[in-house]
């Protein structure tokens, strides 16, 4: 098993975290927004602030000294960290052309976790910074992801429509955006709610994978069930299935896989959603997951029903 041992170790150190609930982001998160002065950066900064996220600084090179929704803007991450040494999480709204550079800036500044919202980053760039982050012992979420939301502690480090989420017992990990909201909403309607929702990103190379996030959910006492939302392309679902088969299921998992009707060799919106050279089709993923004892739902509403059944049985 190849895991990002160092960061996971740090993140799993609950003594450090006090009594925080959920994973990756919590009330101790002090957030930097890279690309804060752009249209999206500014829009989502306001949404995150309104939800309760503690955003302490923003960075846009050349725009130092400005303020966005009251948040001070700096020219560099280095400067932001000097003024606000409590920063431990960064979120990126930097356009694709400049995004990789901004990721390295965050990694080199030693920020523990960086959430990369940006879509259309070249895959070779992601491959390099994801491996670099691993060497540096920091966590990258994304690229091309909706971020992380922790409704229990009211922290949104992402672009989530927060009213579809509610505090609860279910951990969600997903390669998708709106489909995640759909399933979260179905859980919320059933009064189940979420501990944390992690959008790992729709690109072929992403910083955190299903196994790593499931491990984090295993270690969060608040999370009683896990929902995994996969899709065609790659082998992340198969790898999770193999991991579960080997190590057993520590907490119940309900999965949904999108793209059963997708034709081969066609990219379905996400750069990573492609059945290529005979690999990555939905049927193979579904049967691998079922074979490992994971319930695979056929519709988003069924995900919520199955999760409810599990939680009712267990409590």
């Amino acid at each position: 098993m190849k895991i990002w041992k160092k960061p996971l170790g740090k993140l799993l150190n609950f003594a450090d975290r006090g009594s925080c609930m959920g994973i990756l982001v919590d009330r101790n998160s002090r957030v930097l927004v890279q690309g804060i002065t752009g249209r999206e950066g500014s829009f989502h900064t306001l949404n995150m602030l309104n939800y309760g996220t503690k955003i302490v600084a923003g960075v846009t090179p050349g725009k130092g000294g400005e303020r966005v929704h009251g948040v001070p803007v700096y020219d560099s991450v280095e400067e932001a960290i000097k003024k606000h040494p409590e920063i431990n999480t960064s979120i990126l709204f930097v356009p694709a052309r400049y995004a990789s550079d901004a990721v390295y800036e965050a990694i080199d500044a030693g920020i523990e976790k960086t959430v990369v919202i940006t879509e259309h980053i070249p895959v070779h760039d992601a491959l390099r910074f994801v491996n670099y982050a691993k060497w540096k012992g920091v966590v990258i979420v994304g690229p091309n992801c909706p971020g992380v939301i922790n409704p229990v502690e009211k922290v949104n480090v992402g672009i989530y429509p927060v009213n579809m989420f509610a505090p609860g017992k279910v951990g969600i990990v997903s390669r998708s955006g709106t489909l995640t909201y759909e399933i979260a909403l179905a859980l919320t309607k059933r009064k189940l709610g979420q501990t944390t929702c992690v959008g790992i990103g729709g690109d072929p190379i992403v910083g955190l994978d299903f196994i790593e996030v499931v491990q984090l959910f295993y270690s969060d006492p608040e999370t009683k069930a896990i929902v995994v939302i996969g899709e065609i392309g790659g082998d992340m679902e198969e790898r999770l299935a193999a991991y579960i088969k080997k190590h057993g299921l520590e907490k119940p998992i309900v999965a949904f896989i999108a793209g059963l009707t997708a034709p081969p060799e066609k990219r379905m919106g996400h750069a990573g959603a492609i059945v290529s050279m005979g690999k990555g089709d939905a049927r193979t993923k579904i049967s691998a997951l079922r074979d490992a004892g994971i319930i695979v739902a056929e519709t988003p509403s069924q995900v919520a029903r199955e999760t409810e059944n599990i939680l009712l049985k267990r409590t």
Partner: peptide, 21 residues
């Protein structure tokens, strides 16, 4: 649909109910 995952899931559900996307 809006979003790749949601749009794929929409196709799948149409097929699930016997339709042809």
């Amino acid at each position: 649909g809006n979003g790749a995952g949601l749009t794929m899931a929409t196709m799948d559900i149409v097929a699930h109910f016997g339709g042809k996307p």
